[in-house]
Amino acid sequence: MKPAPFDYLKADSLSEAAEALAEAGEDGRVIAGGQSLMPMLNMRLAKPSLLVDIMGVDELGRIAEEKDTIRIGAGVRQAKLQAWDGLSRHLPLVAAALPWVGHAQTRSRGTVCGSVAHADPSAELPLVLTALKGGIVLRARRRTRTVSASDFFLGMMATDLKPGEMIESVSFPKAAPSTGYAFREIGRRHGDFAIVACAAVVDASEARLAVGGVADRPMVRTLPLPVSGDFDDALNEFAWALNARDDLHASARYRRELVRRLGRQSLEEAARCRA
């Protein structure tokens, strides 16, 4: 379990990193916290020819409060976000999800954007980013573009990130007034990838449920409020639409059942928080 050979560049600036990645194209990868990429390198599932380390780039290490959003640079570790004093005020859903991301020993290294880039369909951060309708800023050399989370995640570890591009930051919309948030997850053990994870956002007009661990990417749907008579049917349709599959850890049916149960529970909790 040793990585195949690669070159390593510790970038001093965003432009240096972006330039090197653009030049390397498909064969280049960003390494930040390494918590997703390094296992794949050790197992030789991935064999990039160049790793660009962005952890020395100061401007990527910032959590910035903007008008309606919180912008998190590609170098921000999960532990840093978890310790940020504005977290529970501005991003209560992220605050609820972060303790479920791996373990303290991996959050201390892993980055928020790294988890987004890896696009594991069971991962919590892509899920809450999708639930909150967040965005991802992608950079290719000096060009940047912003993609919404729902357009970014394309499938199993597949994203809209193009060869030569890197994630510069992600932005989470700030908590809106009279909106409630809730997060629920069932995994086999503490800290495991989710069998089913639910992120719920409820405001006066709508209830939004995002589900991870079931489809090949985080899926989100607007549902009637849980008090409504057609809620159960709508949630059931969503559960089926996720196209669950049997695997080692859980049957497809079990996942659908959890979607129905956790889905209801999380939306109800979000509705309570709003009140």
């Binding site: 599932l45 594991d120 369909p121 069971s122 499938g155 199993m156 597949a158 990838f193 599959r245 695997d247």
Partner: peptide, 12 residues
Amino acid sequence: VGGRLLDGAARV
């Protein structure tokens, strides 16, 4: 090592 992830990949 990646059954959890890769079944879906084969589908892709």
